[in-house]
Amino acid sequence: MHTLLYNCLIMCFLLHITTARAQNDMELVWADEFNYNGLPDPEKWTYDVGGHGWGNNELQYYTEADPDNVSVKDGQLLITARKEQYENNVYTSAKLVTRGQQAWQYGRIEVSAKLPKGRGTWPAIWMLPDLPSLNWPSDGEIDIMEHVGYDPGVVHGTVHTEAYNHMKDTQVGQQIQVSDFNETFHEYAIEWTAEEIRWYLDDKLYHSFTNEGTEAAWPFNKAFYLILNVAVGGNWGGAKGVDENIWPQQMIIDYVRVYQAKP
Protein backbone atom coordinates (compact mmCIF):
# COMPACT_ATOMS: atom_id res chain seq x y z
CA MET A 1 0.00 0.00 0.00
CA HIS A 2 2.79 2.41 0.96
CA THR A 3 4.68 1.51 -2.23
CA LEU A 4 1.61 2.24 -4.38
CA LEU A 5 1.09 5.60 -2.68
CA TYR A 6 4.75 6.48 -3.09
CA ASN A 7 4.67 5.63 -6.80
CA CYS A 8 1.53 7.75 -7.29
CA LEU A 9 3.18 10.70 -5.57
CA ILE A 10 6.28 10.36 -7.73
CA MET A 11 4.19 10.23 -10.92
CA CYS A 12 2.23 13.34 -9.88
CA PHE A 13 5.47 15.17 -9.13
CA LEU A 14 7.00 14.22 -12.48
CA LEU A 15 3.85 15.33 -14.31
CA HIS A 16 4.01 18.69 -12.53
CA ILE A 17 7.70 19.11 -13.38
CA THR A 18 7.09 18.14 -17.03
CA THR A 19 4.27 20.67 -17.41
CA ALA A 20 6.28 23.41 -15.69
CA ARG A 21 9.29 22.69 -17.91
CA ALA A 22 7.11 22.81 -21.04
CA GLN A 23 5.77 26.22 -20.02
CA ASN A 24 9.23 27.51 -19.06
CA ASP A 25 10.41 26.69 -22.58
CA MET A 26 7.71 29.01 -23.93
CA GLU A 27 7.02 32.72 -23.75
CA LEU A 28 3.76 34.60 -23.68
CA VAL A 29 3.17 36.09 -27.15
CA TRP A 30 -0.49 37.18 -26.94
CA ALA A 31 -3.12 37.49 -24.25
CA ASP A 32 -6.35 39.13 -23.23
CA GLU A 33 -6.84 39.39 -19.46
CA PHE A 34 -10.03 41.46 -19.93
CA ASN A 35 -8.85 44.10 -17.46
CA TYR A 36 -11.11 46.75 -19.02
CA ASN A 37 -14.85 47.37 -19.42
CA GLY A 38 -17.07 47.63 -22.49
CA LEU A 39 -16.82 45.72 -25.72
CA PRO A 40 -13.94 43.29 -26.45
CA ASP A 41 -10.70 44.94 -27.57
CA PRO A 42 -11.15 45.59 -31.33
CA GLU A 43 -7.40 45.27 -31.84
CA LYS A 44 -7.65 41.65 -30.69
CA TRP A 45 -11.15 40.46 -31.62
CA THR A 46 -13.55 40.67 -34.54
CA TYR A 47 -16.90 38.96 -35.13
CA ASP A 48 -18.52 36.34 -37.28
CA VAL A 49 -22.01 37.67 -38.00
CA GLY A 50 -25.20 36.06 -39.30
CA GLY A 51 -27.99 33.58 -38.74
CA HIS A 52 -27.75 31.08 -41.59
CA GLY A 53 -27.20 27.98 -39.44
CA TRP A 54 -23.41 27.95 -39.77
CA GLY A 55 -23.37 24.56 -41.47
CA ASN A 56 -24.89 22.86 -38.42
CA ASN A 57 -28.53 24.07 -38.49
CA GLU A 58 -27.83 26.28 -35.49
CA LEU A 59 -30.68 28.53 -34.31
CA GLN A 60 -28.88 31.70 -33.22
CA TYR A 61 -28.06 34.92 -35.02
CA TYR A 62 -24.52 36.04 -34.20
CA THR A 63 -24.57 39.80 -33.69
CA GLU A 64 -21.70 42.26 -34.07
CA ALA A 65 -20.45 44.28 -31.09
CA ASP A 66 -23.84 44.13 -29.36
CA PRO A 67 -23.39 44.55 -25.59
CA ASP A 68 -26.48 42.39 -25.01
CA ASN A 69 -24.50 39.46 -26.46
CA VAL A 70 -20.90 40.30 -25.67
CA SER A 71 -19.27 42.54 -23.08
CA VAL A 72 -16.28 42.84 -20.78
CA LYS A 73 -16.97 43.59 -17.14
CA ASP A 74 -15.11 43.13 -13.85
CA GLY A 75 -12.17 41.43 -15.55
CA GLN A 76 -14.22 38.90 -17.48
CA LEU A 77 -15.54 38.42 -21.01
CA LEU A 78 -19.25 37.56 -21.15
CA ILE A 79 -20.72 35.86 -24.22
CA THR A 80 -24.50 35.74 -23.77
CA ALA A 81 -27.02 33.70 -25.74
CA ARG A 82 -30.55 35.09 -25.53
CA LYS A 83 -34.01 34.01 -26.60
CA GLU A 84 -35.14 36.94 -28.74
CA GLN A 85 -36.34 37.46 -32.29
CA TYR A 86 -33.67 38.79 -34.63
CA GLU A 87 -34.35 38.74 -38.36
CA ASN A 88 -35.33 35.11 -39.06
CA ASN A 89 -33.83 33.72 -35.85
CA VAL A 90 -35.36 33.34 -32.39
CA TYR A 91 -32.03 33.38 -30.52
CA THR A 92 -29.04 35.73 -30.55
CA SER A 93 -25.46 35.18 -29.42
CA ALA A 94 -21.90 36.21 -30.26
CA LYS A 95 -18.94 34.59 -32.01
CA LEU A 96 -15.59 36.23 -31.39
CA VAL A 97 -12.61 35.48 -33.64
CA THR A 98 -9.00 36.61 -33.85
CA ARG A 99 -9.08 36.20 -37.64
CA GLY A 100 -7.53 39.21 -39.32
CA GLN A 101 -5.88 40.23 -36.06
CA GLN A 102 -3.77 37.28 -34.94
CA ALA A 103 -3.11 33.64 -35.80
CA TRP A 104 -0.53 31.17 -34.57
CA GLN A 105 1.31 28.11 -35.83
CA TYR A 106 2.18 25.87 -32.87
CA GLY A 107 2.26 26.83 -29.22
CA ARG A 108 0.15 26.53 -26.09
CA ILE A 109 -3.31 28.12 -26.11
CA GLU A 110 -5.05 28.53 -22.74
CA VAL A 111 -8.60 29.72 -22.05
CA SER A 112 -10.04 29.91 -18.54
CA ALA A 113 -13.81 29.59 -18.81
CA LYS A 114 -17.05 28.94 -16.96
CA LEU A 115 -19.58 27.29 -19.28
CA PRO A 116 -23.32 27.76 -19.76
CA LYS A 117 -25.75 25.02 -18.83
CA GLY A 118 -29.04 23.69 -20.14
CA ARG A 119 -30.38 21.67 -23.04
CA GLY A 120 -29.64 23.43 -26.30
CA THR A 121 -26.47 25.27 -25.25
CA TRP A 122 -23.36 24.55 -27.30
CA PRO A 123 -20.32 26.61 -26.21
CA ALA A 124 -17.02 26.14 -27.99
CA ILE A 125 -13.38 27.23 -27.85
CA TRP A 126 -11.78 26.25 -31.14
CA MET A 127 -9.46 27.11 -34.02
CA LEU A 128 -9.60 27.29 -37.81
CA PRO A 129 -6.82 27.94 -40.36
CA ASP A 130 -6.12 31.55 -41.30
CA LEU A 131 -6.69 31.22 -45.05
CA PRO A 132 -8.39 33.46 -47.64
CA SER A 133 -10.98 30.72 -48.19
CA LEU A 134 -11.66 27.62 -46.14
CA ASN A 135 -11.99 24.11 -47.53
CA TRP A 136 -13.44 22.18 -44.59
CA PRO A 137 -12.49 19.63 -43.36
CA SER A 138 -9.33 19.18 -45.41
CA ASP A 139 -7.85 22.45 -44.10
CA GLY A 140 -8.35 21.25 -40.51
CA GLU A 141 -10.15 22.24 -37.31
CA ILE A 142 -8.94 22.09 -33.69
CA ASP A 143 -11.65 21.96 -31.03
CA ILE A 144 -10.02 22.92 -27.74
CA MET A 145 -13.31 22.61 -25.85
CA GLU A 146 -16.90 21.78 -26.76
CA HIS A 147 -19.80 21.09 -24.43
CA VAL A 148 -23.41 20.23 -25.29
CA GLY A 149 -25.97 21.05 -22.65
CA TYR A 150 -27.97 17.84 -22.86
CA ASP A 151 -24.85 15.96 -21.71
CA PRO A 152 -23.83 18.11 -18.73
CA GLY A 153 -20.25 18.00 -17.56
CA VAL A 154 -18.82 16.08 -20.52
CA VAL A 155 -16.17 18.22 -22.21
CA HIS A 156 -14.82 17.24 -25.64
CA GLY A 157 -11.45 17.86 -27.31
CA THR A 158 -11.40 16.94 -31.01
CA VAL A 159 -9.72 17.41 -34.38
CA HIS A 160 -11.32 17.37 -37.82
CA THR A 161 -9.33 16.67 -40.99
CA GLU A 162 -9.96 15.16 -44.41
CA ALA A 163 -9.28 11.71 -42.99
CA TYR A 164 -10.88 12.26 -39.60
CA ASN A 165 -14.13 14.22 -39.38
CA HIS A 166 -17.67 13.91 -38.11
CA MET A 167 -19.15 13.74 -41.63
CA LYS A 168 -17.43 10.36 -41.97
CA ASP A 169 -17.88 9.59 -38.26
CA THR A 170 -14.10 9.23 -38.05
CA GLN A 171 -13.34 12.33 -35.95
CA VAL A 172 -10.61 11.84 -33.37
CA GLY A 173 -11.48 13.11 -29.93
CA GLN A 174 -11.64 12.41 -26.25
CA GLN A 175 -13.93 13.41 -23.40
CA ILE A 176 -13.32 14.37 -19.79
CA GLN A 177 -15.80 14.88 -16.97
CA VAL A 178 -16.05 18.39 -15.47
CA SER A 179 -18.82 18.20 -12.88
CA ASP A 180 -18.73 21.91 -11.92
CA PHE A 181 -18.36 23.20 -15.49
CA ASN A 182 -20.91 26.01 -14.95
CA GLU A 183 -19.86 26.95 -11.41
CA THR A 184 -16.06 27.08 -11.52
CA PHE A 185 -13.49 28.45 -13.93
CA HIS A 186 -11.42 25.72 -15.56
CA GLU A 187 -8.47 26.12 -17.89
CA TYR A 188 -8.98 24.45 -21.27
CA ALA A 189 -5.72 24.25 -23.19
CA ILE A 190 -3.84 22.62 -26.05
CA GLU A 191 -0.13 22.26 -26.70
CA TRP A 192 0.50 22.04 -30.44
CA THR A 193 3.78 21.12 -32.09
CA ALA A 194 4.77 19.84 -35.52
CA GLU A 195 4.45 16.29 -34.18
CA GLU A 196 1.42 16.32 -31.88
CA ILE A 197 -1.55 18.18 -30.39
CA ARG A 198 -2.23 17.58 -26.69
CA TRP A 199 -5.36 18.58 -24.75
CA TYR A 200 -5.32 19.63 -21.08
CA LEU A 201 -7.91 20.37 -18.43
CA ASP A 202 -6.36 22.40 -15.61
CA ASP A 203 -2.93 21.11 -16.75
CA LYS A 204 -4.14 17.49 -16.74
CA LEU A 205 -3.40 15.78 -20.06
CA TYR A 206 -6.43 13.86 -21.30
CA HIS A 207 -6.04 13.54 -25.09
CA SER A 208 -3.41 13.62 -27.83
CA PHE A 209 -3.36 13.44 -31.62
CA THR A 210 -0.14 12.51 -33.43
CA ASN A 211 1.06 13.61 -36.86
CA GLU A 212 0.77 10.60 -39.15
CA GLY A 213 2.73 12.28 -41.92
CA THR A 214 -0.07 12.76 -44.46
CA GLU A 215 -1.92 15.95 -45.42
CA ALA A 216 -5.26 14.15 -45.16
CA ALA A 217 -4.59 13.33 -41.52
CA TRP A 218 -2.45 16.32 -40.48
CA PRO A 219 -3.24 19.73 -42.03
CA PHE A 220 -1.93 21.43 -38.88
CA ASN A 221 1.21 22.87 -40.44
CA LYS A 222 -0.09 26.42 -40.87
CA ALA A 223 -1.37 29.28 -38.72
CA PHE A 224 -4.79 28.98 -37.06
CA TYR A 225 -6.93 31.67 -35.43
CA LEU A 226 -8.99 31.36 -32.24
CA ILE A 227 -12.80 31.32 -31.93
CA LEU A 228 -15.03 31.75 -28.85
CA ASN A 229 -18.78 31.28 -29.24
CA VAL A 230 -22.02 30.02 -27.73
CA ALA A 231 -24.29 28.32 -30.27
CA VAL A 232 -27.93 27.41 -29.69
CA GLY A 233 -29.32 24.10 -30.91
CA GLY A 234 -27.88 22.68 -34.11
CA ASN A 235 -27.17 19.17 -35.28
CA TRP A 236 -25.25 18.32 -32.12
CA GLY A 237 -26.18 20.95 -29.57
CA GLY A 238 -29.87 20.54 -30.36
CA ALA A 239 -29.88 16.78 -30.85
CA LYS A 240 -32.25 16.44 -27.88
CA GLY A 241 -34.08 19.70 -28.38
CA VAL A 242 -33.75 23.13 -26.83
CA ASP A 243 -35.12 24.07 -23.43
CA GLU A 244 -36.89 27.38 -24.05
CA ASN A 245 -36.97 28.28 -20.35
CA ILE A 246 -33.25 28.54 -19.53
CA TRP A 247 -32.27 31.75 -21.32
CA PRO A 248 -30.18 33.82 -21.16
CA GLN A 249 -27.08 31.65 -20.77
CA GLN A 250 -23.44 32.79 -20.66
CA MET A 251 -19.94 31.54 -21.28
CA ILE A 252 -17.67 33.59 -19.02
CA ILE A 253 -13.99 33.88 -19.94
CA ASP A 254 -11.42 34.91 -17.34
CA TYR A 255 -8.40 35.00 -19.64
CA VAL A 256 -6.97 33.89 -22.98
CA ARG A 257 -3.21 33.29 -23.24
CA VAL A 258 -1.00 32.09 -26.07
CA TYR A 259 2.56 30.87 -25.56
CA GLN A 260 5.09 29.90 -28.18
CA ALA A 261 8.58 28.43 -28.07
CA LYS A 262 11.32 30.84 -27.12
CA PRO A 263 13.72 31.73 -29.94
Rank of each mutant, 00 (worst) to 15 (best):
Y106H: 15
H2C: 13
D68W: 04
G153Q: 14
L205N: 14
A124K: 02
G100Q: 07
G75H: 09
W54C: 04
L77C: 07
F181P: 01
I252G: 03
W45S: 08
R119T: 15
K204Y: 07
Y91C: 00
I176G: 01
D254Q: 10
Q76M: 09
T214C: 06
V159A: 00
N235W: 05
G38M: 06
Q250W: 02
P152Q: 07
Q171R: 11
P129I: 15
N57C: 00
E87N: 05
Y200S: 01
N88E: 11
Y225C: 04
M167N: 13
Y106L: 15
M1A: 11
N35I: 02
T92I: 02
Y61V: 00
Y62T: 02
L14E: 13
Q177R: 13
I197F: 01
R257Q: 14
I17P: 05
D151I: 08
V148N: 02
E212Q: 13
R119L: 10
T193D: 08
V72N: 12
L226A: 03
N7H: 15
V49D: 05
G157T: 06
V242G: 01
A31Y: 11
G51K: 03
D48E: 15
D143L: 04
I176E: 01
N88F: 09
K117P: 00
E141Q: 14
E64W: 04
M11Q: 10
E212I: 01
G234Y: 03
P132I: 03
Q60P: 00
V155H: 14
Q249R: 14
L96E: 09
T210I: 09
G234I: 08
Q260Y: 10
I197W: 02
Y62A: 05
K83Q: 13
T80P: 06
V111T: 15
E84Q: 07
D254G: 13
A22Q: 12
G173P: 01
A31E: 12
G55D: 08
D74S: 11
L77A: 07
R82H: 10
D66C: 08
P263E: 15
T19G: 00
E27R: 07
W199S: 04
A22F: 09
S179E: 12
A239G: 02
G233R: 13
T46G: 11
V159R: 00
Y6M: 12
Y225D: 10
L96Q: 11
W236G: 00
R82E: 05
V256E: 06
L78V: 06
K44V: 09
T19I: 11
G50P: 10
P132T: 06
E215T: 04
V148A: 00
L77P: 12
K73I: 06
K114G: 00
Q23M: 15
Y255V: 09
Q177C: 05
N182M: 06
L14D: 09
F34W: 13
L77M: 08
V242K: 04
Y200M: 06
A216L: 05
V232Y: 02
I253S: 04
F220W: 05
H16F: 15
L15E: 14
V159Y: 01
A81D: 04
L59D: 01
S179R: 13
Y91Q: 03
G237N: 05
E162P: 05
F224Q: 03
Q102K: 14
W45P: 04
E215C: 00
E215Y: 04
D139Q: 12
V90N: 10
L226G: 04
N57P: 01
Y225H: 13
S133R: 08
